[in-house]
Amino acid sequence: MKRRFLCCALWLAGAVQAAGFDYGLSARPVAPDVHVFIGRSEDFTTANGGNIVNTGFIVAAQGVIVIDSGPSLRYGQQMRQAIAAVTPRPPVLLINTHHHPDHFLGNQAFSGLPIAALPSTIRGIAADGNAFAENLFRLSGDWLLGTEVLVPTQALAAGPLAVAGRQLELIALDGHTGADLAIYDSASGVLFAGDLVFNGRAPTTPHADIGHWLTALDQLEALTRRPGFTTLVPGHGAPTPDAAPIRQTRAWLTWLRESLHQAAEAGLDMNEVLARPLPPEFADLPVAASEYRRSVGHLFPAAEQAALK
């Protein structure tokens, strides 16, 4: 009797928790057979469970191609359910665009499938995945319960990729991290830009090389000028039918680099750099103040070193 009561209590607790850990994912079509899940323009919190990221999928003739798996096992599981609500076809391939945790910690939900990424993304996930997961657990709490790192198994290379009856073009870039994969779906004209492009949210820079990033943005913008291009899906923020988010990301990065360079040349100390106000054009950009603070920490030491030579 006592045991039964305990089971009942656990079941109730489980039910309450499950309701509390619902990401509310619902697939949004951006083109025929191409869908995305749009995250919030926020920092990681225990309220959003890490759902600040965009993921997506392409319903191909012979199965579903999944692009990024979100910040947790739960997210990956709920993503699979939401995909199943759109198509009966099974996922056949998961691609991780880069080695940041909000893009690969849902991999576990796709175990058994081929999981593919650029070689240095695979190395990055293998080396830093657990540390990233711990950090995200600290920021987003129990949403991540049960989440473990699943390292991609298949190395991708730039160029055409025929998969499940679909023709993808893989564009291997870098700058946001050491390896950033953009994916162009020729049939729909949708460009998945990964975290090289942010829309309506200040970009994150923990592994950024701004010079490389700006070069990558130029390449992405060239893709949006192709005749068949229809939609840009940024890594964070709303999809657009144009290159506006690329220009927005470029404007932020250009300002950030120039501002840190000038500050270092002027002899400012890191605390003084942190205290500088954002320019009016970025003052209302979501999470601009917190991303600026982080970026000073990530990027100012190098700017400083250059100025001290």
Binding site: A266, G267, L268, Q305, L308
Partner: peptide, 16 residues
């Protein structure tokens, strides 16, 4: 590596 500043807002400053 180090530098001194003799003008501007950081005049009189030394960084090392």
């Amino acid at each position: 590596s180090g530098r001194q500043w003799s003008e501007g807002p950081a005049s009189g400053r030394l960084r090392l």
